[in-house]
């Protein structure tokens, strides 16, 4: 896990988040948070994470859920218990909760990238 002790916001990024997909590059290759951090540091190119995110949002969310560890179990009204496997199922079935679960992953990406880029 990349460390940067002087950035407390960055240190709030859970270690498993570094290896999860946060977007795709212009060639459609998956970019993890760790990749994104390296690319930013190298200054070679700045990736616009949201440029092709909308068309691939379901795939990105599923890929993250299939690889995430320690996914917090919660309840959704009308569904009951939602763990990682249930979240994947609901998205694949395009259930009425799929959009919320996809948004949840995208919000998580945004929060982690925000922490990564924080200058506090």
């Amino acid at each position: 896990m990349p460390l940067q002790k002087k950035n407390p916001e960055r240190n709030k990024i859970p270690k498993d988040q570094w290896d999860l997909v946060v977007g795709l590059d212009n060639n459609g290759n998956e970019i993890t948070l760790k990749d994104y951090d390296s690319i930013q540091k190298e200054g070679v190119m700045r990736i616009q994470l949201d440029s092709n995110r909308e068309t691939n949002r379901k795939m990105i969310a599923l890929h993250r859920l299939e690889n995430v560890k320690n996914y917090g179990i919660f309840r959704l009204p009308g569904v009951g218990k939602v763990d990682r496997e249930k979240a994947i199922q609901l998205i694949k079935e395009n259930s009425k909760h799929a959009e919320y679960l996809i948004q949840l992953e995208l919000k998580t990406i945004d929060l982690m990238v925000q922490r990564l880029n924080s200058t506090e």
């Binding site: 709030k12 859970p14 498993d16 560890k69 320690n70 917090g72 919660f74 929060l111």
Partner: peptide, 15 residues
Amino acid sequence: IDNSSQNGNYHIFIR
């Protein structure tokens, strides 16, 4: 929650 061992989605839920 941010400083807990939880890995992601609870960070969003509390917000």
